[in-house]
Write a protein that binds this DNA or RNA. Structure first.
Lengths: 244, 244
DNA sequence: TATTTTTATATGTATATACTTATATCATGA
DNA sequence: TCATGATATAAGTATATACATATAAAAATA
């Protein structure tokens, strides 16, 4: 019977709903914090904490001395594009399309110098070397080359690769993913791209190079996702917090 | 003599410095909140607010019941790549290199359907139509095609374009920039690219399409930045806040 | 009328305090 | 030895309160 999430989160959820349903309209002011505090039966500090979260999401903005205003029509979804996050990313993004995977390579090796740097490993700590082709409605969509430290996921196998690395890490191993650092380039197609992505020699490729890490800072994935230039774009939402 | 920034921000700044200088080492625990509160002579709530900010920046992470740990070695700079933010972005990024601009087009027009949508304008509200070539040490670097509503910046002129749109908007007009939504694609070079970026027909181009807006949600820029595929990559840091 | 000053209002910051909950450590017992 | 349970610890949540400060609206003044 105890509340699963803190009050400020429940309140944020309710306010998000009101914005979505038009109770609070874009470009108009919301009730002030004291009024909301009274309505929800909490202190103003708790309301403020809820509003702070919504501000960071870009749903509202506040002006000291004035009030709180609804924005509400900014696109909010970020396109994650992480091999390990396919169930949040690709699957969610494509909705009802049929996403399948094909494992092209599943090997284990000692890390190169570069991998040792990116994944913070010693030279005697093996990494998985995985290449997967992801298809949408049987059409080649993205070619993913992924390296992951074996020690973090000793029991990784081909069956998991076909399903979801993400839910394996999160649900089975209890690892908490935290963030990613991505570098996006344009490149020319190479032999693998031509073979698996059905593209021509000389075609441009959109490559996303990524290091992803856990909540404690451990890197768990170094990957390259290669997309046909006309098949996909990469989307980023950057809300810069006001610099003090 | 009054403090220009709030205490929690000053404390965050000091802790950032300590991490940078190695007083608090990566992978080790920091002093607990009560100790820090005592040291800085503030309440624990104030310390917590400072730590919350550092957590969002990805510098530290906290575990309830355990403590606060330093991460500290995650690359933090985001490559903004916004025409209007060149003084935070391009200039800052390239440090001591000499960045110059060349105005290729500076016109005014009524918006197309697409511009009306992206910039939330009526068909009788004119937009500036700007093409700039940016050079680093006299080498072509990026070709920027920018559209901005005239009503937000009636006095924009060619001299400003050569200097900094960003500081004009921020310092002269007092507008507060808030965020941007970007879409990144790979593309094939077109005539303009070939002419100004010194590239060959068939070369891949990294294009960043962007809508940027002010704190109140008003879009003020719709732009395309086109980069030679081997000249530049686009970098993103994505710290996902723990989902509740 | 136009400008300046005052006042009311709403958000921001900061504190002290109490309680909750996740984690690690240490003691206990099978 | 290994699992279980108590205990200490540290961060998280929430409140009440006071004051600071930015903004808008109203009142006073030239």
């Amino acid at each position: 019977m105890q509340p699963q999430s803190p009050k400020y989160e429940q309140i944020a959820k309710e306010i998000r709903k009101r914005i979505r349903e038009g109770v609070y309209q874009p470009k108009t002011a919301m009730p002030d914090q004291n009024t909301l505090a009274e309505e929800f039966g909490v202190s103003r500090m708790t309301i403020k904490k809820a509003l702070d979260g919504l501000t960071m999401e870009g749903l509202i903005y506040t002006r000291r001395g004035d009030g709180t205003y609804v924005l509400g029509d900014i696109p909010l979804k970020i396109d994650t594009n992480s091999p390990a996050e396919e169930h949040m990313g690709l699957t969610a993004e494509l909705g009802h399309e049929r996403v399948t995977s094909q494992v092209i390579k599943f090997a284990i090796m000692f890390p190169t110098e570069e991998l040792m740097t990116h994944l913070k490993l010693q030279k005697n700590e093996p990494v998985f070397d995985i290449i997967r082709l992801r298809l949408v409605n049987d059409e080649p969509y993205v070619l993913e080359h992924t390296y992951m430290p074996q020690k973090l996921m000793p029991d990784l196998n081909e069956k998991i690769l076909l399903h979801s690395i993400y839910s394996y890490l999160k649900d089975d191993l209890g690892l908490k993913l935290s963030g990613a650092y991505r570098k996006i380039h344009a490149d020319l197609s190479n032999d693998l791209d031509i073979r698996y992505l059905n593209c021509q020699p000389g075609d441009p490729i959109l490559e996303v190079e990524q290091v992803a890490w856990l909540q404690d800072g451990t890197p768990f994935e170094y990957s390259f996702s290669r997309n046909r230039y006309n098949a996909r774009s990469y989307t980023v939402l950057d809300i810069s917090q006001p610099t003090v």
